[in-house]
Each structure stands twice: as C-alpha cells, then as structure tokens.
Design a binder for these strands. Structure first.
Lengths: 200, 200
DNA sequence: AATTTTTTGGACCAGCAAGTCCAGAAAGTG
DNA sequence: CACTTTCTGGACTTGCTGGTCCAAAAAATT
C-alpha cells in the first residue's frame, strides 16, 4: 500500500495545521472539526491518514512540535562554549517565549494528550535530549576552566531544564517572562560563581 | 436568601470531594457526573450551589487547592532563617511531591479551567504569595550575613518558584523527582556561594 | 483504455456530558 | 401548627464530538 506524494503532502498539511492551531488557540479543547476546518480537509481524510483517530493525530503533532523546539535552539545548544554563547542562548529562549506568549506548544499538547501512553514518552525523550545538550555545554565550560570542576554537569543541566519549564509555565499563568529570565540568569550566575558554597 | 448550616456543609463536601478526585484521577476529563457520584449528591445540588455550572465549581476547587498548597508549607515558609530550615523546606517539598506522584493539584486544575478568566487569577495570586514568602526568607538570610548582599532577593525568589513549578512538571512527565531535587539544590547552592560571579 | 488503488467529501450514527426543570422532603419561622 | 424557604433527587433535553461508512474523483499501473 504505497502512499503517493499527494497523500504525503496532505498528511503533512494536517499535522502542521493542527500544530499551528494548538499553538495559538485555547489549549482546553481542540476538536477534530476544528482541525478539519483549518486544514481544509474532510473527516474521511483525517481517519484515512490517522486510523488511530484523535490520539494518533495528536501524537503526530507532539512529535512534530518536539522536533521544532529542539531544531529552533540547535544552533545555540550545540555550541555553548563561551559565556557569550550562553547569554545568546538565554536571549533566544526569552525572546521566543515572549513572542509566543501564553502558549507552550508542548504544554498544550500534554494537557490534552497527557493521558495517552505515547505522548508523555515523546516529551520525556525531548527533555532528555535537551538536558544532554545543556550538560555538554557545562562540561565544555569546565574543560575551558570557566566553570569550577565540582559542579555536577548533569544535575545542573536538569536544573536548567526544570527552570525553563517552570518559567514558561509561570508565563502561561501570569503572562510575564520575568520568572523565566530570573531563573535563567540565576542559574547562569551559579555557573559563573568562582567558589564552591561552604559546606554546612 | 440565607444559607443554612446543612447547605454550607453540602457545598463544602462537594468542593472537597471534587478536589480529592481531581488530585488522584486522570487530569484530562472530570465530569459533573463523576463529582456527583463521588460526593453523593445530585445534579440539582450541583447547580444549586454553583449556579455558574462547571466553571464556577472548578474555580471553587482551585481556590481550595491553592490554599492547601500554601497552608501545607506555611510552617516552613514562614521561618526560612537558617540553612537548616531551608534544607528542611526542601525536604518537605520533595517528599510531598514524591508521594503525590504525577499529579500537581493546580496543574490538573489549570489544565481544565485554564481558559476561564478566574482560574489563572487564582494561580497568579498564589504564586505571588509563594514568591513573597521565599523572598522574605532570602532577605532574612542576608540580614544574618549568610547570603551575600548583592543577591536580588525578589528575582531569586522568582527563580525558586519557576524552578519548583518546572521540577513538578517534569515529574509529571517522567515520574522522577530528580529534576525537582536538582533545581532546588542548585538554587540553594547559589545562595550559599560566598562570592559574586565575575562580571563578563 | 481498462483496471486497480489511493484519495477525498460528507452524510450519518451513537454516546456522552452540561445544563434545565420540577416536584417533593426537610428545615427554619411566625 | 400553618407557611415559607431552602435543599434534594432525578428524569429529560440539547448540543457537541469522535468515529463509521460509502460512493465518487483522481492517480497510478497494466
């Protein structure tokens, strides 16, 4: 059962249209009819390309969005080797979420597809990749003697990921990027601190 | 139109029952029928006490839960005056969320009532109170010369709040409290750092 | 051109969940 | 004890939404 080029294009159109809609709209409820209207398709097509129904469709959107999040930062994430690069990365994140406003693409996804088994799996792997990149950046800075060696790169990377997630979530409630900025700046400051904390 | 004691009790029962259910169940969809069954009430009562329907009911639950979150930590939050107190607070948070598992009470609420105008308002005020408490703790430590004076208490408090939120959200996806622990430890370490970071 | 396969459109169905309504029980009040 | 008001139960309505089905259009294949 080969899929023609036209078919592939339609499928793509559905995924991207649904993603855009999910990103911009009320996270609460997105109906198949919405998606149908936006993407200019019919019920038949929706179920033709996603026999698993809504769950399968949302999962595909989640995969698509997860890729987008990482791709967006890839240029910066891959080269966190100087303080300037870290600050640039910080700026990109803040700017992006400021523009995007109160809607974390994955947050919306997780809100609706959180129940399905695959969705959280997607989020999990994305977070893991993200953390790996940040950890590599910290290690690079340690190799350059810009960050003290006692810092646990992996754990601190986890802190960054959690901080970003939380900052974005606060943004969703308050509409302000202040918290995101605060947590990023604080963590970067932590890396820059020349001495280890006194043990208690 | 006075409300009798019995009426007040029923209303309370509805809110608490709904809260418990929301905390434990699938965050996705909670129906009025679920709530009705759990609290042993009827449709008539639900709409008698919450004329605004589901939205009003969920809002009441959100207020209730927000209060619970703060009350739970009040003993610790109110006295962050020694490192030992900070570590105890950290422990309480981690333990609580570990036990509670993958369900942030407010996360679930926000997922369903996120659209309604009042819900995010509730979350916003709760986060603000929370931040105020943490900021007061940081200032107390600064007064005791345990934290260097250059630290911006308010901003760092924001970082804590964002970090906790993010840690919990990661917990919801991955089921692991590691990230929450990492971000709390890192931020506490930051406070303990005896020297300011080198300016770039 | 004939035929097979994929793609598309939309009518239709079934179930569920929010919300309405009203009658009767319980509880205050004079 | 009469009377008013609040409280409770549950049947019923209404609208929406995911999902099914099938026939026709469009491609691909021979």
């Amino acid at each position: 059962m080969p899929i023609t080029a036209k078919g592939r294009a339609t499928r793509q159109r559905i995924v991207e249209g649904a993603a855009t809609h999910l990103r911009g709209g009320e996270p609460g409820r997105v109906t198949l009819d919405d998606i149908r209207a936006i993407t200019g398709t019919s019920k038949g097509q929706l179920f033709h390309y996603f026999p698993g129904g809504k769950d399968e469709l949302l999962l595909a959107v989640a995969v698509f969005e997860a890729g987008r999040v990482l791709d967006d930062q890839e240029p910066h994430l891959g080269a966190l080797t100087t303080w300037a690069a870290w600050l640039r990365w910080r700026e990109v994140l803040v700017t992006r979420y400021r523009a995007q406003g109160a809607h974390c693409p994955l947050g919306s996804l997780l809100a609706q597809a959180g129940g399905t088994p695959g969705a959280s799996e997607v989020v999990r792997t994305m977070l893991a990749q993200w953390r790996t990149h940040v950890a590599a950046g910290i290690e690079a800075m340690q190799a350059a003697r810009e960050v003290r060696a006692e810092v646990d790169a992996s754990r601190t990377a986890s802190a960054f990921i959690a901080g970003i997630q939380g900052g974005v979530q606060v943004l969703r409630s308050t509409g302000s990027v202040e918290d995101l900025e605060a947590v990023l700046d604080t963590l970067i400051d932590y890396l820059r601190c020349p001495e280890s904390p006194t043990t208690c």
